[in-house]
Simulated scan of single mutants.
Amino acid sequence: MARNLTAQRSIVDADSPFTFLQQRLRYVDACPDRTFINVAENVPCWPSPFPDGVLHAEDTLAYGPCEGSAFLLRAIEARERAVNKISPNPEEILVSNGALHGLSLVIRALAQPGSVALVQAPVYICIPQMLRAAGFRVRYFSAAAGLGELESLLGEDTRLIYVNSPNNPTGQVLSSAQMARLAELAASRGAKLLADVVYDSFAKPGVDRGSPLANREAWPHVYTVNSMSKNYGSPGLRVGWVLSSAENVRMLSALLERECVCVSGPSQRLAASILEHGNAALVDHVESGRRLLSEALRQVPGVVCEPGVGGTQLFASLPVEDIEAYGDTVLRELGLLLATCSQYEGVSGPFIRLPLGAPRDTLSRALKLLAESLAIYGHASPRI
């Protein structure tokens, strides 16, 4: 029988400049003598060691081109042909310091104070924060039932449409027809479509995952942003890339040069090596995690989860009153670090995000602690 004890907020502070997740990570860092089970991050982990790349001295001792090194541009071009069936030219690719940097470059290049950005919800919290900082007014739409809600919100003041497919955290995937329609709507209203596709390697077999760049005529109105972090399990490289028309990329390249000159040469060299190696093992690992975690969560009383068809995480609703109090309590009492709903805007409820690509032993221990903690702090009756 559940004991129904009350969880307490004791770690996160709404007035802190850091996200709740970052505050909990800082709590973990401040307790080096404790053992924690971290399932807060959704970066998939390689199931076996990855071969070392080769560092070249010239990458370290000289600046590179602001748009990216030629060898990495070639590797990205080959990757996009294989994965998305598109063929960008080198001048249509910009290498950035990770996806968030790429998104920030696009958002600031397009900013017009007071204009509207229509944002697919739910959305990672940093995106609307960047949009507001650039002067956009943010309005949310759901694509769960199609694009009707988006179309009803489009107005003369719409400057930007942001989508994330596969979506973090729901795993929703926009189809080829939906992506084509989004590009068409953006062009018809003089707006730009910004598609965040950092999980585009991860979709269940047979799922129609569209690219807004499938039609060459759409490129002047569309930006896609990708990265090595999620698709290739290498967030430490801080390497991402933006695809758009050559004119749009030139504008972004100039902005990048003013800010940071170029992206790290050694990181670009390693990124090219990983792209050439491919991520098939990582994709298989995540897909097996989707099956494993979906089945395991069905056995935990009170947990509600509708697994998406893409992405590297599941979004699960827990039987608790205050998800942030629960998150603080299980971290403090049990050493279980979770990513809660506070990491997103455009959604509310007692949600946590669980990573499909985490090491299997870590997931197993986390699921055990999750079930134990809900028996204490949850309000669902255990299944017989």
Rank of each mutant, 00 (worst) to 15 (best):
A2D: 12
A2M: 11
R3F: 12
L5V: 08
L5Q: 12
I11Y: 04
F18R: 13
Q23F: 05
R26H: 15
Y27M: 01
V28Q: 08
A30M: 06
F36K: 03
V54L: 10
E58W: 02
Y63A: 09
G64C: 01
I76N: 05
R81D: 00
I86N: 00
S87G: 11
A109V: 11
Q112V: 15
R137K: 14
A143L: 02
L147N: 01
G155L: 01
G155W: 08
I161R: 05
N168M: 13
P169T: 04
A177S: 09
R181D: 01
L182R: 07
Y199M: 14
G206Q: 00
G206H: 01
D208E: 00
N215G: 11
T224A: 07
S227M: 06
S245Q: 05
R258S: 13
C260T: 15
I274C: 07
H285D: 10
E287N: 13
A296E: 07
Q299A: 15
V303A: 02
V309A: 09
G310P: 14
Q313W: 10
L314S: 01
L314K: 03
E321H: 13
L334H: 15
L338C: 05
S342H: 08
Q343F: 09
V347G: 07
I352Y: 03
L356P: 00
T362A: 04
T362L: 08
L367E: 00
